[in-house]
């Protein structure tokens, strides 16, 4: 009787693992097939080099560059905000803050990532943009600047929390060696602790980038929906994710070329996040070895 019970439990655990894998494989397969069908009609070269993305207009262009530039621009702005703030927080918490303070502030910071991103998107649109317009009258109502800044705030805990773990894991003996030679706390933090934790910090940054690239609501709400190949942060742009939302919610016909553009955009996004995850996985593996 017990044997049968154990067998059932074991098999159901196994099957849930298999289901997860199957779903993932299924998603990738659908992505690949639909993208393949897309590329039968649109040349891969045009996709990568055309500077316009207008699949829904009468004059159709299928260049991914405008969407890609929108994604990279908002991501870049977000990281420019999250990196200095997140890193400063992590260094402060690990090297300066009393232990009790560290314990209370860390979960509070992680709350930032728990706020629904639609709230952030709205915040960017109705608070940050009008505020910035006071200093930058030329700023459009939709723009990558506010979206990027707010997204940066959202991903601060990705940088600060993981970096702090990496900094805190640096052996005390290294800090003592540095203090023992007359180094200040600041010198010790930047010349010994940060370099020793660099792989962990890099992983945290990659994960934050990965999160920013995949973020949808904030950019869909606040950055606009105009595919535009530009590095100007004050004008409306469209990111890959925002485009996918736009078309998914619209009434394009199932199986049409317009419909397949979603998958072409989706696979581009997938390639990026997949690469970033692989790199961070590699670094993390190496770094685990170093401390063991």
């Amino acid at each position: 009787m017990r044997k049968i019970k154990e067998l059932i439990i074991e098999k159901s655990l196994l099957s849930s693992a298999l289901v997860t894998i199957a779903v993932t494989v299924g998603i990738i397969l659908v992505l690949a097939i639909e993208a393949f069908l897309f590329f039968k009609e649109v040349s891969f070269f045009d996709f990568l080099t055309d500077t316009q993305w207008t699949p829904l207009f009468t004059e159709k262009h299928y260049g991914i560059l405008p969407l890609l530039s929108g994604t990279l621009l908002t991501t870049f702005i977000a990281i420019s905000v999250a990196l200095p703030i997140g890193l400063s927080i992590s260094i402060y918490l690990s090297e300066y803050a009393p232990r009790s303070f560290r314990k209370t502030i860390k979960p509070l910071l992680e709350l930032l990532a728990a706020v629904p991103s639609v709230v952030y998107g709205f915040f960017a649109l109705v608070v940050v943009t009008p505020y910035l317009q006071q200093f930058m009258p030329s700023l459009s109502g939709f723009n990558s600047l506010s979206a990027g800044i707010v997204m940066g705030i959202m991903i601060i805990p990705f940088v600060s929390s993981l970096s702090e773990d990496a900094l805190f894991a640096v052996p005390k003996a290294l800090r003592e060696a540095s203090y023992g030679m007359g180094a200040t706390r600041l010198q010790t933090a930047f010349k010994v602790v940060v370099p020793a934790a660099s792989s962990g910090i890099i992983v945290s940054i990659i994960l934050a980038i990965s999160r920013a690239i995949g973020e949808t609501m904030i950019v869909a709400i606040a950055a606009g929906q105009q595919p535009r190949l530009t590095l100007d942060p004050t004008v409306p742009v469209e990111t890959i994710t925002a485009y996918i939302v736009q078309v998914s919610l619209g009434d394009v016909q199932h199986g049409s070329l317009e419909y397949r553009t979603i998958f072409a955009a989706g696979i581009t996004l997938f390639v990026f996040t997949f690469l970033l995850n692989t790199v961070s996985f590699r670094i993390r593996k190496k770094y685990r070895e170093k401390y063991e």
């Binding site: 003592e176 023992g180 030679m181």
Partner: peptide
Amino acid sequence: EQLRKDVGMVFQKPNPF
């Protein structure tokens, strides 16, 4: 910092950077 320049320390376990 001044004190520790004058009073160096070597630890139990070698701890090179």
